[in-house]
């Protein structure tokens, strides 16, 4: 009977992968159309956190004589090392927001993900699209942050950009963040997603080597080891290497390996999570 069936298949299967790529492209088009509609909100969402960060730590504190990292050249150093941290935190935070939060609604009561889940491609295709969509928004977020971290601080910021590191790390960081967002969005029950900000997003951002280089945690060895499970540590260490000189950073080989491992691991977990959600 199966032979009989296969004769009736009229659409060419050999174009499958190309077809999936086209569907993913169309889905990204949908996400960008939605983003364009809400561009003003997106910019506000992206700017607020890094702006407040940089404003309080590198403008207000030095002005009121509570400079972080001591006075004089130490303040300059802090403003400089914070750049990488703020770019990194914006990337990871925006990717999680862009991927996980819409899924709360789409998987929840409205089930509006369904039309996209019924697009002609396997469930993993939708997962890949969500990760890419989150990554693109995260890269936007990272780029938007640069002018803020350069011009808001009261003290001068001295960046020494290593373009090769920057151009390879930002997309990698964005993709890792997208997989993290999708993992959260697919494995945490929709009603519990607000909770993830308390138990996942806050620890990741507060203990993500944002305000200090990872090496400076040496006096607290247990914390120095524990934070290695945090992908933001590698993102920020890598970005610090890409943006500054003279600030200690982790060996770049470890940074790339760790980010690739996180991509594969979280990618697989999130694809599995999405499959579970769209196919009962």
């Amino acid at each position: 009977m199966k032979e009989t069936m296969s004769q009736v298949v009229v659409r060419d299967r050999s174009v499958s992968l190309l077809m999936y790529a086209r569907v993913i492209f169309a889905l990204l088009g949908r996400d960008l159309a939605v983003l364009k509609k809400t561009a003003a909100f997106f910019v506000i969402r992206v700017i607020m956190q890094p702006f407040l960060f940089v404003f309080v730590f590198t403008y207000v504190f030095p002005k009121i004589g509570q400079g972080v990292g001591g006075g004089g050249s130490k303040e300059v150093e802090f403003s400089t090392l914070l750049v990488a941290g703020v770019v990194g935190i914006s990337i990871i935070f925006q990717a999680i927001q862009a991927v996980a939060l819409p899924l709360v609604q789409e998987f929840g009561f409205t089930k509006e993900i369904e039309d996209r889940a019924l697009a002609p491609m396997p469930a993993w295709g939708l997962a890949v699209e969500k990760i890419l969509s989150g990554a693109i928004q995260a890269i936007f977020a990272g780029i938007v942050v640069f002018p803020i971290v350069l011009f808001v601080p009261a003290t001068a910021v001295h960046l020494q950009i290593n373009w090769i590191l920057l151009i390879t790390l930002v997309p990698l960081a964005a993709i890792v963040s997208g997989t993290l967002g999708l993992t959260i969005g697919t494995w945490i029950p929709p009603t519990q997603v607000p909770l993830i900000f308390a138990i996942i997003v806050l620890p990741i951002t507060f203990l993500g080597a944002v305000y200090y280089p990872w090496a400076s945690l040496t006096p607290i060895p247990w914390l120095k080891d524990i934070v290695l499970v945090n992908p933001l540590v590698y993102i920020n260490e890598g970005l610090r290497a890409a943006l500054t000189t003279g600030v200690p950073h982790m060996n770049m080989t470890y940074v790339y390996i760790a980010l690739l491992v996180f991509t594969i691991l979280l990618g697989a977990v999130s694809i599995k999570g999405l499959q579970k959600r769209v196919v009962g």
């Binding site: 199966k2 069936m5 296969s6 004769q7 009736v8 298949v9 009229v10 659409r11 299967r13 499958s16 077809m19 999936y20 019924l118 697009a119 002609p120 491609m121 396997p122 295709g125």
Partner: peptide, 13 residues
């Protein structure tokens, strides 16, 4: 439409 839904879900869609 003649397509095996379990084996080829993308084509079946």
């Amino acid at each position: 439409g003649g397509v095996d839904v379990v084996k080829h879900p993308a084509e079946a869609k």
